[in-house]
């Protein structure tokens, strides 16, 4: 066994060995931290205070049930937070992907009057550092009556940023022949887009949607800033922790933390390999 290990080490480049050691240390800290949180969620409050780093004496899975009744933010319990997380994330992701996809498609596949302006807006403007927009944007949300209003999701209807870049890159790679033959068969522009091109772009769209979903699920700033009466799991847990600073049942709080982390971890684990291959900005010249 040791001989075999020595042989492997001898055959492996030193750079690979050093990289492995660095990666191993980094991975260990990450797994340890999350494992520590899971174990903390299974203790009694007193046990957590006295021996935070020890294994639980008795594994208290009831903390997870208790989390649904105890954890509370802005009058919403954990069920409500879970529901808010779901609908906000789903609707936001859907709007964002649909709008970005439409713009990315026409920019990638057509030449039209104003295309240069669109490309300038997409490539140059987001990079220009303008910092006062936060205050002006917040004021505008209030003026439009979108503050603390479910219609705030309309703000997601933007086609600027990373989603556009990735989808445009994908649409650029699709062969022209499909569109041409569909057009010869009498299909209109929208039909070509909806029936031919969209299904072909589905892997990229699904990956983007997943990224948006995970990002939205984990976002805590947007609900805190704009939707305070609709706390999501991420923002609700922060609010709960801040408001009950000295009266917090830490294991139950950690149970909530673990519950919040589970959906994106499952989603990501299922789709990891597809996600890696379908995400590309700027493409690769060949």
């Amino acid at each position: 066994m040791i001989k075999a290990l020595k042989k492997v080490i001898k055959q492996t480049a030193p750079a690979r060995i050093v990289t492995f050691i660095v990666f191993f240390i980094y991975a260990f800290t990450m797994v340890y931290a999350l494992g520590w949180a899971v174990l903390a969620s299974l203790k009694t409050h007193i046990e957590f205070m006295l021996t935070p780093n020890a294994m639980p004496e008795k594994w208290l899975f009831s903390n997870y049930v208790e989390a649904f009744s105890v954890l509370n933010a802005s009058g919403a319990n954990m069920f409500t937070m879970l529901f808010n997380s779901l609908w906000l994330t789903l609707v936001n992701s859907m709007i964002s992907v649909v709008v970005s996809c439409a713009v990315a498609y026409v920019v990638a596949r057509f030449n039209f009057v104003g295309k240069k302006v669109v490309l300038f807006v997409q490539f140059v403007l987001p990079m220009v550092p303008i910092y006062g927009g936060g205050a002006a944007g917040y004021k505008l949300i209030h003026q439009l009556g979108l503050y603390d209003n479910p219609l705030f999701v309309l703000k997601s209807a933007s086609a600027m940023g990373m989603i556009f870049f990735i989808l445009r890159s994908f649409f650029l790679t699709l062969p022209k022949e499909y569109e041409e033959s569909a057009a010869m068969d009498g299909a209109g522009y929208f039909k070509v887009y909806a029936v031919i091109m969209l299904p072909m772009a589905l892997p990229a769209i699904a990956s983007i949607f997943l990224m948006c979903f995970i990002g939205g699920w984990n976002d805590y700033m947007m609900p805190i800033m704009y939707m305070p009466s609709y706390p999501t799991l991420a923002s609700g847990l922060y609010i709960y922790e801040t408001l009950s600073k000295f009266n917090i049942n830490m294991p139950v709080y950690f149970a909530g933390i673990v519950i919040c982390a589970i959906p994106p971890v499952i989603l990501f684990s299922i789709s990891r390999s597809k996600l890696m291959t379908n995400m590309s900005v700027g493409g690769l010249k060949g």
């Binding site: 492996t12 991975a27 931290a33 949180a37 984990n218 933390i257 994106p264 971890v265 684990s269």
Partner: peptide, 25 residues
Amino acid sequence: VLGYKIFNVIFMIPMMVSTVVLVAV
């Protein structure tokens, strides 16, 4: 690199898990 499959998953944890969760931990 050796163990790349498991590292691939672990390195993505910060992206999968909310900042609220990671900061709390």
